[in-house]
Amino acid sequence: MLLALATASFRIESSFRAQFWFKLLSGVLNVIARVSIWQSVFLHGAGSTDISLPQMITYAILGATTFSTWDATQILREIGADIRSGNVVSHLMRPYSYPVSLYARQLGARAHEMLMIGLPVLVVMGSVYGFQLPASPGHAALFILSLLLSIFLLFTVSIAASMIGFWVMDMLALEWSLRGTLALFSGGLVPLWFYPDAVANTVLYLPFAWISFYPLAIYLGELDLLSSLLHLLYGLSWAVVSAVLVALMWRAACRRMIVQGG
């Protein structure tokens, strides 16, 4: 059934053709913006770094196509509308857990975005700007695992944020707070190795770093295989913690819900 939900949301996404072309254009512009920044600072800026320009271009292209987090916050708007209208109650009657169904729905939409938009943009822009392959087959395998972990964490974090909506009812503020947090702490826009040390030392241990930064660092081989594996396990424990958090929040939200009328 959860597979059916994921497939349905995949199909919904693919039924708007004009939207598809504009999303492609949007993906291209996003890559251009990020790559242009790195080209500019690497070619004209001062300040030295161990990272090379081709590595940063790969980081930017992968970051923009596979790890973009801005749209993931849309789920808050959907849940917010469900809470406001009271529709959320209808999910209680269905034979599945509401948070798990949210995962399935997001997974379909995300898969659509990655395969139908992210992948073509990656191939085209990669051939324009140049694109590096994973550092080694081992890194490639760990990258795939960390990508799955990243998707899971992104969904869990956004579902947890939307659960707060049962108490504060203000989804716009939650959506923007989450966007800001992810923009700054996930390392999707700027890799954490460029952050000032004092900030990086904290951000490197927060769960958000596993959403964009660590998968990309593993891909580029900036972490050796053993430390990639250890970081992956660390990230996995964040996934468990956040999944438990969502389950607890959902239980508390269910207790808080009052159903009127019939």
Binding site: A173, S177, R179, L184
Partner: peptide, 12 residues
């Protein structure tokens, strides 16, 4: 809402 949106922009 003001604070949250300003935070969203300030992060970028």
């Amino acid at each position: 809402g003001w604070v949250a949106q300003a935070f969203g922009y300030a992060s970028v």
